[in-house]
């Protein structure tokens, strides 16, 4: 029981990170109907920017951890958002009228570029960072097993929750959110009624990348290590989360993320850790076959 509870806590923490990345997939898919294949790598870039920003801040004398982390958050979100924006601008926007597979192939190319760019400029090795946020609480301390909730886990889940609320508010209440929803319904119609479609799409990529950056920071703080390859696997899992929750749906992305996090954690805890990625990838295939609209998604009517 205590073991189960501990895995539940770990799973929700991991799932929150997946959920943050999944929002980027789901938003972009909702608006322009494409899988932004490079999004997982944007998350990885976010992690690297956060790492370097932190080291740079320490080097110039900002050693108070809360201040440094807050600055890191701002810097990483801003710069990663810039990446999201630039990728859309360079590799996707000119292809909006091109043939069906063009944006997807371009996105795959972008993903390969980002991975190898980071490998070249920062080296292939893993980048460890000492634990910055220590401490935690012991919830249950039975003879056999102590259930611990670390501070970093609290921070990850809380940050995700706050961002989720803020983001839902943005989509529901602001002008930008309205434009986004309009674009989601029908791009051409939206532009006819005066929505600046290019700007809305750019902003979508920007926000998606900023959230991925937050996920990158959380990953860095939680695991204490990043490398150039984390984006690939995390990307596929987050995409699985987006599909599982129902692509196009924001709460769905979060729900899917947490489910994937839980499945992965429990699989590792009770079965074999070697096959945890196989489990996640298999879920993707199974969900797409049997539940393509996801848990909270709307059924898609084929346009004839």
């Amino acid at each position: 029981m205590e073991y189960f509870l501990q895995q539940l806590i770990n799973g929700i923490t991991l799932g929150s990170i997946y959920g943050l990345i999944a929002i980027g997939y789901t938003m972009v898919y909702g608006i322009i109907g494409m899988i932004n294949f490079a999004h997982g790598d944007v998350f990885m870039v976010g992690g690297f920017i956060a790492l370097i920003a932190f080291l740079a801040l320490v080097a110039i004398g900002v050693t108070a951890i809360p201040v440094a982390l807050f600055l890191v958050l701002l810097i990483a979100m801003a710069l990663t958002a810039l990446y999201g924006w630039a990728i859309e601008r360079i590799a996707y926007r000119p292809l909006r009228q091109s043939f069906r597979l063009a944006p997807l192939i371009s996105a795959i190319g972008m993903s390969i570029i980002l991975q190898n760019y980071i490998q070249i400029v920062q080296g292939a090795g893993a980048k460890p960072l000492p634990r910055l946020i220590e401490g935690g609480h012991t919830l249950i301390d039975s003879e056999a097993f102590a259930v611990r909730l670390s501070n970093i886990q609290i921070i990850v889940v809380l940050t995700t929750f706050v961002l989720m609320v803020a983001f839902s508010w943005l989509v529901a209440k602001t002008r930008l959110g309205r434009d986004m929803r309009a674009c989601e319904q029908d791009l051409k119609m939206a532009s006819l009624v005066g929505v600046n479609v290019d700007r809305t799409i750019s902003l979508t990529f920007l926000i998606g990348a900023a959230l991925a950056a937050v996920a990158g920071i959380m990953y860095l703080l939680y695991y204490g290590v990043v490398d150039f390859y984390i984006g690939f696997v995390a990307g596929v899992k987050a995409f699985t989360a987006a599909v599982l929750g129902g692509i196009g749906s924001l709460p769905g992305a979060m729900l899917g993320g947490i489910l994937i996090g839980l499945i992965e954690t429990f699989w590792s805890a009770y079965f074999t850790i070697e096959y945890k990625d196989v489990a996640a990838f298999s879920i993707l295939i199974v969900v797409l076959i049997f539940l393509p609209t996801g848990i909270l998604g709307r059924p898609e009517v084929e346009k004839v």
Binding site: M34, I35, R100, L101, L104, V236, F239, T240, V243, T272, E274, Y275, D277, V278, F281, S282, L284, I285, L288, I289, P292
Partner: peptide
């Protein structure tokens, strides 16, 4: 057989996942 009914981009990601599954199984 099961996945070819999917839309083009879903198919892409499913084949990607399949490729990874095969590799992971071969490794483990």
């Amino acid at each position: 057989f099961p996945v070819l009914r999917l839309r083009g981009d879903y198919l892409a990601i499913v084949t990607l996942a399949f490729g990874e599954i095969i590799r992971l199984v071969l490794t483990n």
